[in-house]
Design a protein around this nucleic acid. Structure first.
Length: 349
DNA sequence: CGTCCACCGGAAAATAGGGAGG
DNA sequence: CCTCCCTATTTTCCGGTGGACG
């Protein structure tokens, strides 16, 4: 291990909150104003959108911390809680402090939660697209109908949830909206620099190396992983050359980070697409990807999932912004998707 | 105008698991 | 322990799509 450039791993972890939030003061203030003072009277719903790695989750977690103790808060991600049941179970555990376990009825947990939310409560539904895709909007409908409860949804894919919600759900939801814009390269560089200062040995990072990362991607999660990979490879100083050389590995690690909460089959599927990308410059179609995935499985002596199932997993990769999919609803090609890795993987310069 | 491409995506069913009551 | 309820994951089934091509 030549990772002696790294003095402390935590600041480079995307899930570690920054020592101080910079470049997002305006958004934090907006949040503070929205739920200011007499919180109970101003409990309103909110939808937050913005590309990946722009600080949505970080801002909201920080915001929940600043709320007075009179407000109950709960954070949950639609990736690990992709059904109403899982989300309700987690919510109940948070609210009551007692675990529930499987085997109950949704209606029963709903009733219990209803009893628990007698005090002002704010619930954050991060990565809400995955829950909506997988299990519809019943949970959101239920939550928005609770007394003294505000729901904050978060999505990297949709600026408004209206198109994917039942009319009755949306009219009960009626969220304020907050758009989180991408960072400018200079801002991304400042954020990464703050983290690097606390993580790396002094003088070990070329300013030019850091700004090269920030020029290439304004996604802070990707930037941090890139930085970490560079630090683990370089034996003395991180130079622009190290950064350039490690780029592909960094992207790969970033995808694995995104897929950490998914199944091994999601990762195999990604590998299959990446492999096809190298072999051909013509974007493969769903069937080609599936056959490649099956070969991949067979070589590893693993039973592949059905085509229908894999089709859903492809949609997951698309929601994670790992792949781009062009839909063909008929025509000479038939009804299918053209699939390619998202362009941040190998954009030159 | 009919057929075909090639899979989308909804629905139902199969499978596997846990809780409550008798 | 058995029955009947529930959820979660995956497979099976299949109607539907719209431009090309005869």
């Amino acid at each position: 291990m030549t990772s002696d450039l790294i003095e402390s791993h935590d600041p480079l972890e995307p899930t570690t909150p920054p020592a101080e939030i910079v470049e997002r003061e305006a958004e934090l203030e907006t949040l503070a104003e929205m739920f200011d003072e007499d919180t109970e009277a101003r409990l309103q719903n909110l939808h937050v959108s913005g590309p990946r790695g722009t600080g949505k989750t970080t801002i909201l977690r920080q915001f929940l911390e600043t709320l007075p103790a009179t407000v109950t808060t709960c954070y949950l991600s639609g990736i690990s809680h992709n059904t109403q049941y899982k989300a309700l179970e987690h919510l109940y555990t948070q609210l009551s402090g007692t675990k529930l376990g499987p085997g109950h009825h949704v209606a029963e947990i709903q009733r219990r939660i209803d009893e628990q939310t007698t005090l002002p409560t704010i619930i954050v539904l991060d990565e809400v697209d995955f829950l909506l895709r997988n299990d519809g909007d019943d949970l959101l409908y239920f939550l928005t109908r609770l007394d003294k409860t505000a729901v904050i949804t978060v999505s990297a894919n949709r600026t408004s949830l209206q198109p994917v919600l039942d009319a009755r759900t949306y009219s009960s939801f009626q969220p304020q909206v907050l758009r989180v814009e991408p960072y400018l390269p200079a801002a991304a560089a400042r954020i990464l620099a703050d983290r690097a200062r606390n993580a790396l040995r002094p003088q070990s990072l070329h300013r030019a190396a850091l700004s090269q990362i920030a020029q290439t991607t304004q996604n802070i999660t990707l930037g941090l992983i890139w930085l970490r990979e560079a630090a683990e490879t370089a034996d003395d100083r991180i130079t622009p050359d190290t950064v350039q050389a490690i780029k592909e590995t960094a992207c790969h690690e970033y995808v694995l980070h995104l897929l950490a909460d998914f199944t091994p089959h999601h990762r195999r599927l990604y590998e299959a697409i990446a492999r096809l990308e190298q072999v051909s410059d013509h974007p493969p179609t769903t069937g080609t990807v599936y056959r490649e995935y099956c070969d991949h499985c067979e070589a590893a002596d693993i039973v592949p999932l059905s085509e229908r199932r894999v089709s859903d997993f492809l949609t997951h990769l698309e929601l994670l912004d790992i792949i781009d999919a062009t839909y063909h609803y008929g025509g000479a090609e038939g009804k299918t998707r053209e699939i390619s890795l998202a362009d941040w993987h190998s954009q030159p310069e």
